[in-house]
């Protein structure tokens, strides 16, 4: 439902965009008027990605991410609101509808991103919590697409014990140098939130105990306090699984 509303909304914006493009087409007769030349510059700039995709696509290369054209965002919005302004002459109606568009733009963005934002906050909080566990090796639930953030925070928080992200062992059917690492370590821990599903076969050690702990992850949605109040909480429950040497 939300996705459908979002698609409809962005389709409407797309229509305004193309209308805005038509409205700023310069009257070519007065070619030395600075306004005309500027409109021409804008037109050429914002058709660049379309030309790029047509050329690259026709030549058969893989297509780049449209976000590479992020630098056109302010110009696209100028064109959209210009098209919108030309359509609606009444200033009050123009402002009222524009504010609705802006609010929808913001909420659509927040709703689509907050799960990811929350995740990065939770993972940083887990990293911080992991420094407090007195074990020789700690496996941490960490899901970012590379291990760089993990290593960055491990270094930043000064991990005294060895560590690795949970994702690097969970898909490996139990055969991982992790066991080699753990072999000479008397105690090791696995720490993560609800997304962590342990499979006993991965662990050769004797499970000592599991504790649940609620920690604050400090995810911050700024002025969107209501989002935090009704949809989310600034804390999460994590599990710490402690193992002994096998």
């Amino acid at each position: 439902m939300i996705e459908m509303a979002s698609n409809i909304f962005f389709t409407i914006l797309g229509v305004f965009f193309f209308m805005g493009c038509l409205f700023i087409l310069p009257p070519f007769k007065k070619s030395r008027d600075p306004q005309n030349f500027f409109n021409l510059v804008l037109l050429v700039i914002f058709v660049t990605p379309f030309v790029f995709y047509l050329v690259v696509g026709t030549l058969g290369f893989k297509l780049g991410n449209p976000r590479n054209f992020f630098y056109l965002l302010p110009i696209y919005l100028l064109v959209i609101f210009n098209g919108f302004r030309k359509l609606i002459y009444n200033r009050k109606i123009f402002y009222s509808l524009s504010i609705i568009i802006l609010i929808f733009l913001l909420f659509n963005g927040i709703m689509s991103s907050y799960t990811f934002w929350k995740r990065v906050y939770i993972e940083r909080a887990i990293m911080r919590q992991a420094t407090k566990i007195d074990v020789g090796f700690v496996v941490i639930s960490y899901t970012q697409r590379t291990s760089w953030p993990f290593k960055y925070y491990a270094q930043k928080y000064g991990f005294s014990h060895k560590s690795c992200p949970w994702d690097s062992i969970k898909d490996r059917e139990g055969s991982f140098s992790f066991f080699e690492e753990v072999k000479n370590i008397s105690k090791f821990a696995i720490i993560g939130d609800q997304t962590l599903h342990l499979k006993d076969k991965y662990f050769l050690g004797e499970k000592l105990f599991k504790i649940n702990k609620t920690i604050s992850h400090g995810a911050n949605y700024g002025p969107f306090w209501f989002l935090q109040k009704f949809l989310d909480r600034p804390s999460t429950t994590i599990s710490i699984h402690l193992f002994n040497e096998s």
Partner: peptide, 23 residues
Amino acid sequence: FWMRSDFKTLMITIISLPSHIIR
């Protein structure tokens, strides 16, 4: 992770380009 450049993907990308950049 670049998108494939088949005709359908290309057309969808071009039509939805403004919304891809704004959203």
